[in-house]
Amino acid sequence: MNRKETTLCVALLAAGLIAPVAFSAYTSQIAFLWVMVIFALTWDMLGGHAGYNSFGNVLFFGVGAYTCAVIQRDAGLSYFTALFLGLGAAGVMAAVTAVVFGLAILDLRGHYFAIATLGLGIAGGEIAAGWRYVGAGSGLVPPLYPGQLGDRGLFFSYLFLALAAAVFVLFRRLYRTQFGLALHAIRDNEDKAEAMGLHTTRYKVTGWSISAFFLGITGGGVGNLIGFIDPHDVAFAGSTYGVWMLLMAILGGKGTIWGPVLGAFVFHITQELFWTYLLGWQRVAMGVLIVLIVMFFPQGILGWARERWPQRFGATVEDRS
């Protein structure tokens, strides 16, 4: 990591550690900021780096949310033991879901894959809404966080900070490995990749499972942070979380490591600031935003910055040697 990046990371880490204590009334919002970063980074692994845009990553989030809540409900353990067990199981269940569906639909190209994932994401919500074991339409309520009123927000601020940092560091490393190169090759020319003998399906499924794992854990955590899980508005919230995952990564600049982080920050902070003014029109505005980005700004903030100042934001120079 070069000096600029390291400084930025340290600064963000410091801010992430101090902010929940300094602004204790806003711990929920801060926690959600890191959730957004995870949303964007996990979407981008397949969306930006492999060129497989998914509309249904929220499926893994929902699977994780429900898995964690069910374990917390049925395991009969103390809060934190059950929580960590639940989070682990959530990640694993989500990853398994990704493997199962990935093997089925990752052979579909581009737009077909996107629409298939849309179907899966929504179907997940519909099934959860009708399944009595997980509370059907009423959803589930995880056990109450033990502690004072503000403690829950504080705890999850740090939990999600740690998770986001882990995702960032891990993904950054992965993108430099053969695996990362393979994803990029798939994005640039999948036919060539196959003709060169790359195990394209293996890499795509692996990528999706890694993303799903972290999304699952995030789902379990968010369920506890909010205090309840509802099939349509929390767990399989396709029209909010599901769309945001895509939007933030593209807004920030897909296919990079800082783009999704940037997009998450911009989107979340803007949303928090203007939420009270827009209220119900928020979702209408989101539709408008997607259309505007697709039409005028598909390269995202980082892509735009690279075009304008190529030297500063990751230039590729010709050697003199």
Binding site: Q178, L181, A182, H184, A185, R187, D188, N189, D191, K192, A193, A195, M196, G197, L198, H199, G255, T316
Partner: peptide
């Protein structure tokens, strides 16, 4: 010709190592 346009020449070669 088919190459990986978004990757550097070096990266194009790195990913071309035998996969078997």
């Amino acid at each position: 010709t088919r190459i990986y346009g978004g990757m550097s020449c070096l990266e194009n070669l790195y990913i071309s190592v035998p996969q078997s």
